[in-house]
Amino acid sequence: MKKLLIIRHAKASHDSDYEDFDRPLKKSGIKDAEQLAKKLETEGLIPQKMFTSPALRAKTTAEIVAKHLDLPELGFIDEVYEASESALLKMINQFPNQYDFVALSGHNPGLSYIITYLTGDYCNLDTCAAALLIFDTDIWNAISADTGKISWFNEPN
Rank of each mutant, 00 (worst) to 15 (best):
R8V: 01
R8C: 00
K11P: 01
K11N: 10
S13V: 05
S13L: 08
S16I: 11
D17C: 13
Y18C: 06
R23N: 06
I30T: 10
E34C: 04
E34S: 11
L36T: 09
K38E: 14
K39Y: 06
E41I: 06
E41H: 12
L45D: 04
P47W: 07
Q48L: 02
T52L: 03
A55N: 04
A55M: 05
L56S: 11
A62Q: 08
E63R: 11
I64S: 08
V65W: 07
L71F: 03
P72L: 09
L74W: 05
E79R: 10
E79A: 14
E82I: 03
A83K: 00
K90V: 06
N93H: 12
Q94R: 13
Q94G: 06
F95A: 01
F95E: 01
P96G: 07
N97K: 12
F101L: 01
A103I: 08
G106I: 00
G106Y: 00
H107P: 02
N108A: 02
Y117G: 03
L118Y: 09
T119M: 06
T119D: 08
N124I: 06
L132M: 13
I134D: 13
I134F: 07
N141Y: 13
A142M: 12
I143M: 09
S144K: 12
W152T: 03
P156S: 07
N157S: 15
